[in-house]
Amino acid sequence: MGRDLHFEDINHRRVFTDTNLSVALDRVLEKAGTEGLLSGVEKYADTMFNPFQLSHVQAELELVSRRHPELEEDVRALSEVFEKVVRIRGYVWIVGD
């Protein structure tokens, strides 16, 4: 079993959940490096990003995509959803295994 991604609105009401993105997230996190916000996402713990943090996460995703072109599709899928969450001033909650 892997991580689950939940997306919440500004009042922490769950807007949607996407378990399909967990595989993409796992692949990206393997290549994210040891610095930045993505490096703090633990496999067995929960992590939550707010809209401000998500703007930094987006930049980190772009860097992963440039360094690892084979992950471009995974990065695109994650970025699209994260952008939607930022537009509603919501949160991304990554639930560890």
Rank of each mutant, 00 (worst) to 15 (best):
L61W: 14
H12W: 12
G36Q: 08
K31M: 00
E62H: 04
L38F: 01
F16I: 05
L78W: 01
T47G: 02
V86H: 02
D74H: 12
V57K: 03
Q58P: 01
G2F: 13
H56T: 08
D4I: 11
V85W: 13
I88A: 03
R14S: 09
A24L: 06
K84P: 00
L25Q: 05
W93F: 15
L54V: 14
D74F: 13
Q53S: 02
A45K: 11
R66E: 04
G33H: 06
L25D: 02
E62S: 12
L54N: 09
H12A: 11
L54H: 10
F52N: 12
K84R: 09
A24V: 03
A32G: 09
A77P: 00
L63C: 14
E60F: 15
R67A: 08
N50G: 11
F52G: 06
G40V: 01
R13Y: 14
S22K: 14
A77I: 07
N11R: 11
H68R: 04
Q53N: 02
E62N: 07
V28W: 01
P69R: 14
H12F: 15
S79M: 13
E72V: 04
G96Y: 09
R66V: 04
V85P: 07
S39V: 06
L63R: 15
D97Q: 12
A45D: 04
T19K: 13
F52C: 06
V85I: 15
D4A: 09
A45G: 05
E60T: 04
V86A: 07
E8S: 03
E73V: 08
D9W: 02
D97K: 13
F49E: 10
T47C: 01
R87I: 00
S39D: 08
V75W: 09
E80R: 13
L21S: 03
R87V: 00
G40A: 02
H12N: 09
Q53Y: 00
L61S: 03
T19N: 08
F7V: 03
V23P: 06
E42N: 10
L21G: 09
E80D: 07
F82Y: 11
R67W: 00
D18C: 08
D9K: 00
R76S: 10
T17V: 07
Y91P: 12
Q58R: 05
V64I: 04
E8G: 02
A77F: 06
E70R: 11
E42T: 05
I10Y: 05
S79I: 01
M48L: 07
S39L: 04
N20G: 12
V15W: 14
S55C: 08
V75M: 07
V95E: 11
T17E: 15
K84N: 06
E72D: 05
S65N: 00
R27E: 14
V23M: 08
A24Q: 10
Q58D: 01
L5Q: 10
Q58G: 01
V64W: 02
